[in-house]
Write a protein that binds this DNA or RNA. Sequence first.
DNA 1: AAAAACAATGTAATCGGTTACATTGATTCA
DNA 2: TGAATCAATGTAACCGATTACATTGTTTTT
Lengths: 346, 346
Amino acid sequence: MAKPKEVTIYDLARKLNVSIATVSRALKDDPVVSKKTKKKIFDLAEEMGYRYNHFARNLREQRTYTIGVIVPRLNSYFMSTVIAGIESVVNNEGYTLLISQSSESAGKEVDSAKTMFNNRVDGLLVSLAYETDDLAHFDQFVKKDVPIIFFDRVADHPDGTSVLIDNRKGAYESTSHLIAQGCKHIVHITAPPKRNVYVDRLAGYKQALADHHIPFDEKYILINNLSQEAGAQAAAAILQMNPLPDAVFAANDNCAVGCMVALKKAGIRIPQDIAFVGFNNDPVSTVVEPNLTTINYPGYKMGEMAAASLINHLNGVNSIDATNTILLRSELIVRASSLKTTSDSE
Amino acid sequence: MAKPKEVTIYDLARKLNVSIATVSRALKDDPVVSKKTKKKIFDLAEEMGYRYNHFARNLREQRTYTIGVIVPRLNSYFMSTVIAGIESVVNNEGYTLLISQSSESAGKEVDSAKTMFNNRVDGLLVSLAYETDDLAHFDQFVKKDVPIIFFDRVADHPDGTSVLIDNRKGAYESTSHLIAQGCKHIVHITAPPKRNVYVDRLAGYKQALADHHIPFDEKYILINNLSQEAGAQAAAAILQMNPLPDAVFAANDNCAVGCMVALKKAGIRIPQDIAFVGFNNDPVSTVVEPNLTTINYPGYKMGEMAAASLINHLNGVNSIDATNTILLRSELIVRASSLKTTSDSE
DNA sequence: AAAAACAATGTAATCGGTTACATTGATTCA
DNA sequence: TGAATCAATGTAACCGATTACATTGTTTTT
């Protein structure tokens, strides 16, 4: 029933017989206001249940203290770890997050960008959808000097900073590891080569083959959406191959797992018949049997770095050109799914 | 370099020699403005790159068109499915989401609530953290007539609407199923019985035992945080039991899986020695071997229902008291992990 | 003791919309 | 034809902060 009126700085000012300017300054802890006055104001604010009105400030200051986050999906272990990292940084700095998932669709990504734009986010953190070809929906931000930082799935945007791992190196290590296990016919399952992560992983895969004098064969490249179901379908394709490949390097763990499960169901032994390496070190990699060899990389840290870098830009600490790419460390974690040698000795 | 000035309704009004009131009305598609004028205004707005300023409206209207979402974690398949459902509804209605994860911590939940409050969300969607005892941090919203809808992990808040499944029934069916498989010593792994989901699942478990004349034994109740690691630790506890239990009903799939993997490593056969049932139908349930019997329930729909219900409240369609609890359907999915009978025949 | 410097506070314009309440001119009614 | 009605538009107050630029009173300097 009650329509509890909001308490404003005007109310505080009236009660204390000071001006709204003093109240405003006191609440921001401006050193120009005397300690005594500040205390009075803080106490009364507390007592009257004053709450700060962001909109008045935003309207006046022409900024929102909001950071937009666009990610392909929230439902991966990796992504939610990244977001936890982002949250930890931006909350400390007094920003709030506007999060949206593109669901891997270019159209939804455009919509999300529009929402972010209309909400006038101060900055943008983006990991691109599979499908996105055209980056025009980010031009509006560049035009308004809204900084954009891409992470993981980055873009070759001349104005953007990127936070990512060396995907090429990770893929090179994975593939080399498989080759060291004696594999010569290595399938690579990946997403359409539009995103850097898939382009680079493919390049690393190819280079490892080349460095070990193994011919590259186009038919060993399987393209899908890297879901668990897609992995199962890839398994069907693999079973059609003649001769069967002796290894699979998948661009993420989910897909690797889906594929492994389906192959096992078809009687393939892993790793004896086909060895497996994934990417991401998702918890599922320690559930599947045999446990999945994979590339581990630090999602939480990636989120922290991306957010910190963005906030530095906003505070004018970094010139936008100063740091253009931040590379994080990644590592190969060897588990049973790729160990042909030890498995053979069983 | 350019400091591109924002285009406002004043600019549009000036150029067209109309008043800002007319521009404002036209942009809201108010029928009182003539079609011709509207067209002129729309066209000019497009041409000049006008963008709507939410803050001015929010300041004036005293609402934000923002909905707060507080969840324990984003990184579960279930939760991100729920959020996808929420997004689909609120975006269509012109609202944006402020999402925050409590990380299962009561303290962070309080912080999140404060952030939401200071951002003056129009409504709140909440799934509670394990730890939360005290709901006082939601009182401020009630006081300001900000509607709160709880989903999945709900609260007995007299003013809140809840969207959830019949957890008791799900647990009853799971347990009964295990009993039908001949199990008599059924361990139940769950979280601290603070949240309805765990209280009700425990109650369903107990009732199933009672209805089948199996005595309840406190030592079969294992309490932890339901993570995969916690599942592994639970396995260690189970291995100490004498005699060994013949089944485990875990309150989520992750924990069930962690427990299964650890037990298998210790040489326990599943389901022959110990049968398993989980909860949630997480994709991992089809990866673990044997595949996990579980309770499936509709995350996407839960998100949609919660969001739609909230928006109805905001639009005054439902009286707050009209609908108090929305129950969604759930179902037992039987897989190999609980099928003693068929497994024995192998 | 007058001038200069400073600390503390106040005044008022500003951000960009919304909307109650006029105002204007055209149309309809009796 | 004058009054009533109505459609279209305008005027101006309001939402609640921020901050450049006064103003006031006190202390320091010379």
